[in-house]
Write a protein that binds this DNA or RNA. Structure first.
Lengths: 226, 226, 226, 226
DNA sequence: TATGAATGAGATTTCATTCAT
DNA sequence: CATGAATGAAATCTCATTCAT
């Protein structure tokens, strides 16, 4: 269920033909690709989606042409980053479902973990310049929605969540609230982010919560975050 | 209590000769200035803070140089837009305080009205490229904070708001949740915005709200929105 | 023999028609024209011939449109400045001729006075963008050349000037050596200007140094240049 | 002793892995850089220091962005041109010192050669828009001053130069007299340039004209200036 | 294949000149 | 007639993308 790195059509089935002394160089290429995506994810968060690709390449420690070899244009890189973040976020949802007993605690844990994965950074990327309906992306998004669906359904059927809440509400609210501000100002905001998504979460909680059970569970979850 | 248009340095210090009552021709100029700010506000919302200024000028119906005459650089224009939105938002807060009897309804009305004023559009502009600590801006921000402070305090002392809520929580949460996505995608999101801020608002409500009184009031408020 | 301010076609012969209560406003117009030319002369010297005309208008204390009413384009203003400087320089030559007894002293006085009139500022203006052969200008230049011709001839026939010197040598050398550097750096240079033109002048002086040893060597050098 | 092309920060500090002997591909880049500097030098001479950089790029036969890659702004290009001209002028001084026997001939040769190198083109560039005190530039200027110092000292101790002459007099006079006029007019002037610097040089020559009658008169004149 | 360099298209900003009051 | 404002054309500089080594 972990994130899998995809390399287009690189099935490595050429071992049967020529002796090819060097099967190794692929390692470097793969590593480069990873580093580019990582750098892009970080810099999209830090500087927004318009960050110069040359800068991304520089941070990744590769030449710009290497970036373009791997991702023919900005759309392709954005696509990969969105895919990557979506995938990692799904992983967090699965972890939360698997490891938290309390249904609301599971949801809370997921939400805070997703914030740490910078789901919010996806928002501005969704705005333009790449194909939001690419099949690969749709599939990954579906995976995420299903995972969150599970968390929501469980919390709801345990009577812990308002019944008028949809998965989309959680995901969109979460994304918006964790959207980083480009530039250094983001740090000030960052200190409040987890507090705000918790407030949002509180709004999702089922009423007659005079005891506020979710909040206690959530605080516990927050305490365990890295 | 309404927004006041500021013209830089209109000191009229004629050194004692003729009275020179009217630097009259400004009628057009003022109108142009207004139109530029309006166009900028709209386009910052629609396309983000990096929208080409030439496009802003085009939408305002003036030549690009007219824009630059009024606002020497992007920072100056951004400054004015932030000032304008802040001011208008404060006006909404004052209206809500004056015209709504129920304290929570007043807060709700403000929050939804602020969303309509596109407070969220301020977020990405706050990230960089202009002086966030300009005195004029600080003053206006203070005015807004005071107005919202009033709304929050009233709702809180009526026992309608959780007591651990600060003005900043409202403003930041509100801003983030209403932050527009550049590009056409924003429209899809927009349909949910008021729903999401209502959810957030619900999270701020005082517990033992088994009857959910605020929600009823809010729905009423929402119904009356234009 | 003093500089006369010229206003095109402003013969003021309209006193015979309508009663026209106000024959006065012309005074202001004339004054404005003078102030523009003065400001332009100063700023051409200080910032070079590309100084923004709006700045010239500002220094003159008039609106830019007033400048353009008097001088339809930069060429027209340049023309007037060149005319003005030429005229004033001629005045200096006439004064020197009239008031100095010693022929070489007269020439010297003229040269240094011309430097103070900023003849050098004319050089870059001569380079382009206006009609160097305008009859009005030709006439004024002729006046200057004649005046300097007189100074040179007198010094030469008194045996005080090398006989291979032409008026052009004096004027061009003088102009080049006094050409100001735009920007503040000119001040450093300025301190040396009079020294340098004096050195140049010394080169023009008739020898008692009949042997001129360096010149022979130099001619040989020049002959070998590519 | 010849001009050395400088490449910024080519420190080659490979951190110990493979030897990476050849950052080879620079052959073209270097050539481009040279061509840009050459084009800039020529066009600064021909059109003045405000010539559009796009035009410089065009003359160099490269895209404008290539120019900006090599020289981030006009100041950087100006810096390089000043450096280059200074360096080449120093080379001319060294050559003259080495190859001319007669001290005054050496100085003369240098002066005329410097004119051919267009030292005068440096003048308007020195006025603004770049750091005149950059260490690299100071060093190169020092080299030039030392070289000319040598020529002057030699001529002086051979009794061929007035003893009140400083290196600065030579360099400034030379620069001013050879300063080109932007625009086509420069050609007319150009024909006289060598003649004029020769006249200037003559002024520097030691008298056998011990009496210097004009100078006394001139000093009197200067004393009376306002 | 990976790289640094090159490129053209576009964004920002300035300025000479014209217009409306 | 004088003015401030408006304008488009041009200059500076940036960046996504392509090329050559």
């Amino acid at each position: 269920m972990e994130t899998v790195t995809r390399i287009a059509a690189d099935t490595d089935t050429d071992t049967g033909t020529a002796p090819r002394r060097t099967p190794r160089p692929r390692a470097d290429a793969l590593r480069n690709r990873e580093r580019i995506v990582t750098a892009a994810r970080e810099m999209f968060v830090e500087f927004g989606p318009d960050v110069p690709l040359d800068e991304v390449a520089r941070r990744a420690g590769v030449g710009n042409a290497t970036l373009y070899r791997n991702f023919p244009d900005r759309a392709a890189l954005t696509h990969e980053v969105v895919l990557s973040v979506t995938s990692r976020t799904t992983d967090r949802a699965d972890e939360a479902a698997a490891e938290e007993g309390d249904p609301f605690a599971a949801l809370s844990r997921f939400v805070h973990a997703a914030a740490d994965e910078r789901v919010g950074a996806l928002c501005p990327m969704l705005s333009g310049g790449f194909d939001k309906d690419h099949p690969e992306l749709l599939a990954e998004r579906r995976r995420l929605e299903e995972a969150v669906e599970g968390l929501v359904a469980r919390a709801m059927s345990a009577g812990r969540l308002r019944t008028d809440i949809a998965v989309g509400d959680v995901l969109v609210g979460l994304s918006q609230l964790t959207r980083p501000l480009p530039g250094t100002a983001c740090l000030d905001i960052d200190r409040f982010t987890h507090r705000h998504i918790q407030l949002f979460l509180d709004g999702l909680e089922a009423p007659a919560r005079s005891e506020l059970p979710g909040t206690a569970a959530t605080l516990e979850v927050l305490r365990r975050r890295p």
